[in-house]
Structure formats: C-alpha cells, structure tokens
C-alpha cells in the first residue's frame, strides 16, 4: 500500500528526515510517535507531498515517485497522489465560509466532478457516520473543536482515499473532546481503513495500531507492534522518551 525508501528532507541546513524507510499494508494502522522536532509530522506530510522530499522514493497504491534535486515532479502527479490520500490536520482547517456539508461536498464536486446531488448524498452519509447528521448546515465556527475535527475526518474521507493521514488530530482539542474524535478513528480502523497517525495519545496507539514507529532526530529508532515498541524498546533514547511520557501521564 505505502512504501517509503530512504526519504530525506532538509529545510536549508536543517536536516529533518535523514533516511526513513517504512511499509504500510492495506487495512493497517500505523502510529508515528516521537518527541517534537523528531520529524514525525514532516514524514506524514511527505506522504501526500505537502512537503516535497529531497531524496528517496515513495510508492502509494499506483502512484510512485523518485525524489531528486532539483525536483521534477509534475503538478498533475501530485494532484493524482493527493486524490488517493486524505489528511486530517491538528487545527482542523475546515473552510469557514462553507457549512459542514458543503465542506464535505467541495472536493467531490470540484475535484471528482460528481453531480451535486450525488455529492450531497455521500456527504450526508459521512456526516451520519461521524455522528453529526444534525449539523449538516452549521458553519464551522458554530461547532465545537471535536465536532469540527469529525467534520474534517468526513471531508477527508469524501474523496474515497486509499489512506487517511492524521497529523496530531487531537492535540488542539480540550481534553473532554478528545474521546469523541478517537472513537471515530477507532471505528474507521475497525472497518479496515488504512491510516497513518501522528499522535501523543499512547493508550489509543496501543489499542489501535498494527505498527508503531518511534522517531527521533530524523531517524526511525523503534519500529514494530505496539507491544514491541511500548513494552520492549531496544534503544536507550526510546526508553528515555517512553519513560518521560508515562511519567507525564502518571502526574
């Protein structure tokens, strides 16, 4: 499904990804964890080319890319890749001038060229799926953070992507709203949606992930099942990070 080989990304002299390899099978859930600045968000954003890698390769379904400098990737190939990936952002990024249902219809109509009636039907079904059927005509500023993020998940799913990317989807939420978003994500995982998730929710990661990646300083330092990574980490750096996290949870 997704295959990443030797991915490098720098901003000026700052090297953020220093050669990352990963494989994600169809229907699997990958959780990426790590301290801030470790490169986990950059890695996720490389998967739909919101960040253009400097070196390495990416295969996602039928879309394959070889990255080099100067970049020669065409806009057309980028758009094709993005139509196969959906992204959910930390800050929701709903379109504020459109209602919830219009947000979900937008890409179906402008990108997929579906008739409005069909897009509307699909959007209604997705809203029901995330438990917001009654909020179809609400503008984003009338919704709580948790509701906005659920609309954002529905919007990302509306283009029928092969994989959903989540960039810290609950980090901007009040604690009491985190649960409703995680619940929707768990449900998607149970239905066999392929997902890559950057998160700090360790319990959620342990419950849902098929594969966990721990990143530090631009490298993957631990990779495996949740049990392997959380309970039997091999590197001292990983042990330190996980101890600090569990320490924070206990406080």
């Amino acid at each position: 499904m997704i295959e990443v080989r030797g991915l490098h990304k720098s901003y000026g002299s700052l090297e953020v990804l220093k050669g990352v390899d990963l494989t994600l099978q169809k229907g699997q859930v990958l959780v990426i964890i790590g301290p801030s600045g470790s490169g986990k968000t950059t890695l996720l954003r490389c998967l739909n080319l919101l960040e253009m890698p400097d070196k390495g390769s990416l295969k996602l379904g039928e879309n394959t890319f070889e990255f080099q400098q100067p970049t020669k990737i065409s806009q057309k190939d980028i758009v094709a890749l993005r139509q196969n990936t959906g992204m959910v952002f930390q800050s929701f990024n709903l379109f504020p001038h459109m209602t919830a249902i219009e947000n979900i219809m937008e890409a179906q109509v402008t990108v997929q060229k579906k008739p409005k009636a069909e897009a509307h039907k699909r959007a209604e079904a997705l809203l029901a799926k995330v438990g917001l059927a009654d909020k179809a005509n609400s503008y984003p500023h009338k919704l709580s953070g948790g509701q906005q993020q659920r609309v954002a998940i529905a919007r990302a799913m509306a283009i029928d992507p092969e994989v959903l990317l989540f960039d810290e989807p609950t980090s901007a939420l009040d604690p009491e709203l985190v649960g409703e978003v995680l619940k929707v994500m768990k449900q998607l995982a149970a239905e066999g949606m392929t997902m890559a998730i950057v998160t700090h929710e360790m319990k959620f990661a342990a419950d849902v992930a098929d594969q966990v990646i721990l990143m530090d300083n631009g490298f993957i330092i631990e990779q495996g099942s949740p049990n392997e990574v959380f309970n039997h980490p091999k590197t001292p750096r990983a042990i330190q990070f996980l101890n600090r996290l569990s320490g924070q949870v206990d406080e």
């Binding site: 739909n48 993005r82 139509q83 990024n93 379109f95 990302a156 283009i159």
Partner: peptide, 14 residues
C-alpha cells in the same frame, strides 16, 4: 491561513 491552502490541496484541488 496557510492551513486553508493545505486543506484544499490535500483534497486534490489544484
């Protein structure tokens, strides 16, 4: 906000 660009482009919009 640049998040608006990113959200639209992540949906495959040109």
């Amino acid at each position: 906000h640049k998040g608006q660009w990113e959200a639209a482009q992540s949906l495959g919009m040109t």
